[in-house]
């Protein structure tokens, strides 16, 4: 997941932290739902040839994901969107990202 997040996230430095958070979130959520993302990652990992997605350099990973985003294969687009959504939601829901975009955060508890 970290390999995909490094490319999908607005800031790749946040990838290790957020990948871990998503893992933890999935573990505590609906077990049936939690199976889907790891399966998507497995498909991505093995589609990229012998060495695997996570071993590719950043530019090559980006190229793979761009290919999936506009793929003619519906399941590739679906997997891309699931990963994109998970990545950008985890990034922007996180208070660490708010200063950079000028969002002043929740009003309760102020």
């Amino acid at each position: 997941m970290e390999a995909a997040f490094e490319v999908l996230l607005p800031d790749k430095l946040a990838a290790p932290r957020l990948a871990l958070e998503v893992d933890r979130f999935l573990a505590g959520d609906d077990p049936e739902l939690a199976e889907q993302l790891p399966m998507a990652l497995l498909l991505l990992e093995h589609s990229a040839g012998f060495s695997g997605f996570h071993r590719m350099n950043l530019a090559a990973r980006r190229q793979v994901l761009e290919g999936w985003e506009s793929s003619e294969l519906a399941h590739r687009r679906q997997i891309f969107q699931a990963l994109r959504r998970t990545a950008v939601m985890s990034f922007f829901a996180s208070p660490e990202s708010w200063d950079a975009i000028g969002y002043d955060g929740p009003l309760v508890g102020r």
């Binding site: 996230l9 959504r85 950008v88 990034f91």
Partner: peptide, 14 residues
């Protein structure tokens, strides 16, 4: 809110 806005846009990456 930021997460929902980002999810419902089409962009990603830097």
């Amino acid at each position: 809110t930021p997460g929902m806005a980002a999810v419902n846009g089409a962009g990603w990456g830097p």
